[in-house]
Computed example of a mutant assay.
Amino acid sequence: MDLEETAYAKINLALHVRRRREDGYHELETLFAFVDAGDRLWVEPADTLSLELTGPFGGDLQADDDNLVLRAARALHDAYDRSGAESRDWQARLGLPYGARITLEKNLPVASGVGGGSADAAAAIRLLTDLWDLPDDYGRHLSIAAGLGADVPACIASQVLVGTGTGMNLEFVDNDLAGTPVLLVNPQVPLSTGPVFKAWDGVDRGALPEGRASLIAREGRNDLEGPAISLCPVIAEVLAALSGTDRWLARMSGSGATCFALYATPEARDAAAAAMPRAWWTMAGRLR
């Protein structure tokens, strides 16, 4: 059995930073959305757990124990390994040691604000749940994901969500943006999250709007755009290039450096993609 799935690219249609917490994390309000394209994962049975990296950005990662996909696989296994009778039933079916041969086709740039690693981890959890014949338990998956990173829980569902706190408190919203043509653009400059948050000026500019996804997106903002541009000025060039196309929204995603634009038609999106410099990475799709 060979199973496959897309690890859907995550974008933040809006990202409001409200304050820095005493634990060092930041209090956020964000509107997550997902594109119908991204990395690809395949899993097949094996006696041991392994990971092979392919794709245009596969060389930017290491298939070592710290890789988020392998960490997700171990966390999923451990969640059932500690579950008493349920665990014994599962182990009797599967046999130990547990294993899987995982292939990750890395199509998304690394450290780019589109949640590639988080989406990969979430896709691994979904795939291995099927491969290992585990219960499709959304609540348990969220609990596992929370131990892996702030964006991983949202990537489990890969649907439009409002995230609060550190982004892990999730609430579904009225998604009137499904099918919207979207273009992602990255200047192929990696940008780490930590320095961007450190460069935030600490000013609370107000709460995330309430309502349908389109209203939140239109009236929201990304409070990390300014800090990210101060560290990576080419982001301003990407935003200017997207703003010069026939879009109805252009914004940076997450902590950058990827930016996105939303369009009324696929034709407008594709014309915009053709106008971007060839040195920049682009991905066209639709919102889920």
Rank of each mutant, 00 (worst) to 15 (best):
W281T: 11
A250R: 02
G113N: 02
W281A: 10
V189E: 14
C259S: 14
L239G: 12
A240Y: 04
A199C: 13
G206D: 09
A228I: 04
F34A: 04
R218Q: 13
R101F: 02
V114D: 04
A199Q: 15
P266D: 14
C155E: 02
P56C: 07
L41F: 10
L13A: 11
G163R: 02
S112Q: 05
G206I: 11
W90F: 02
R88W: 09
E5S: 14
A14M: 14
L41Y: 08
T164V: 12
L13E: 02
L68F: 01
E44R: 15
L61S: 08
G59F: 07
D2Q: 15
A275H: 03
P153Q: 07
E22S: 15
E5R: 15
D176R: 06
P56L: 09
A122F: 00
R20D: 02
R19T: 12
R93H: 08
T103L: 12
G95N: 09
W281S: 08
G285Q: 05
A14K: 00
A7W: 09
N186F: 11
R40D: 13
L94H: 06
P109V: 02
G58F: 06
E219L: 15
F32H: 00
M168P: 01
T129S: 13
G84R: 03
D133L: 13
L191I: 04
D66W: 01
A100L: 10
K106N: 06
L224Q: 03
E219G: 05
A121L: 05
E27I: 04
D201V: 03
I229Q: 14
D47S: 15
V160W: 00
R212L: 09
P209V: 07
E52A: 13
D223P: 08
G117S: 09
Q159T: 13
H26D: 02
Y25G: 04
I216H: 00
T265E: 08
R140Q: 15
E267D: 15
M252A: 08
E267K: 12
A85H: 11
R88A: 15
E171I: 13
E219R: 14
G244P: 12
G167P: 03
A178R: 14
Y25I: 08
R88Q: 13
G220W: 01
A124F: 00
G202R: 00
E44F: 00
V238C: 13
P135D: 04
N12Q: 02
E171L: 14
D64F: 01
G165D: 01
E219A: 15
T193Q: 03
L94K: 06
V234L: 09
G113F: 04
D60A: 14
E105F: 00
V110M: 11
Q159C: 12
F172P: 12
G220P: 06
A119L: 04
N107F: 06
V35R: 03
D246M: 09
A273V: 11
N169S: 15
T103N: 07
V69A: 11
P209G: 09
R40Y: 11
D78L: 13
L170W: 03
M1V: 12
R18K: 12
I229N: 01
G55H: 03
A111N: 06
H26I: 01
T6C: 11
P233F: 07
L76S: 05
L76R: 04
Y263M: 06
V152M: 08
L41N: 11
L13S: 05
G179F: 07
T6R: 14
D133M: 11
E225W: 02
P195D: 05
D137E: 11
A236F: 06
P277G: 08
A217W: 05
V43R: 09
L127G: 03
A284G: 14
